[in-house]
Design a protein around this nucleic acid. Structure first.
Lengths: 132, 132
DNA sequence: GTTAGCAGTATACAATAGGTTAGTAGTAAC
DNA sequence: GTTACTACTAACCTATTGTATACTGCTAAC
């Protein structure tokens, strides 16, 4: 049916499926509106308590922050450290495993920056052609 | 614009915000359940017509495929080529610009594969401790 | 004694994403 | 004449996601 692309069509079908699954997993682990924001804040600012995080991640509600932290913990990106005290203090800390995201973050950053610039220059071009 | 990561905390605030925006844009351009799947299919199989795509991207509905293709076109990843004929034929083709996603796809693939393996070995460890 | 901060949870609702079903207009094969 | 193919779109429904507001139980400050 298809023979194109590369060398071994039979093998490429399996490889393609595996790649699709891997990319799917990655998108689901770090996708959504908040997960990467939380991770980046923790990277920049270090470990934080719940209310501190809610202040730093602007716009997030307590309920959503709570859910996202639970998922991040399940995926092994953060650990929840409880310090018993008069007011119980809970700190969220990035794990070493979260460092494995470095490559993904860098690629997304580089591409997003480039894309942003492209959109900006396109909008400028459109504005120029209007006022010509 | 920014030199390096650490060293300068004052400057890192701006860099952090820029990075956040860039990553946000990237996630929104390629995030969701279908966009990358469609792109990968077009990469592997070459240009395809609407119904062909719906068959190749298993599980997607016509409505959603239509929406996703419109967004992919807006972001400059695909072009829609109309061939007037007895039944009008429309082909969706990847643009050169879609190649800029190469780095992101590779990073997601590598990380997703690694993460998958980690989850798998964790599940195996859990199964072993049950039947110990 | 009222207020504020700690770390959330409960409840209700709104918005968005995605899915299901059916239907458009035209052609061509059975 | 019925079916199937072309590329979609409209209407409707559900499920996930996000928001808003209030509340818990505890401590400490004012």
């Amino acid at each position: 049916m298809e023979t194109q692309t590369a060398e071994h069509p039979a093998r490429s079908a399996k490889a393609c499926a595996a790649r699709l699954n891997a990319i799917h997993d990655a998108i689901y682990a770090i996708g959504g509106k908040w997960k990467l924001k939380i991770i980046i804040v923790l990277r920049e600012e270090g470990s934080k308590r719940f209310n501190e995080l809610q202040r730093l991640v602007t716009g997030i509600s307590a309920r959503v922050l709570s859910n996202e932290l639970r998922e991040l913990e399940l995926n092994g990106f953060v650990i929840r450290k409880v310090y018993d005290g008069r007011p119980v203090v809970v700190e969220y800390e990035l794990t070493d495993y979260s460092d494995t995201l470095g490559g993904v973050l860098h690629a997304l950053d580089a591409w997003g920056t480039m894309h942003r610039e492209k959109i900006r220059s396109e909008m400028q071009a459109a504005a120029n052609s209007e006022t010509k």
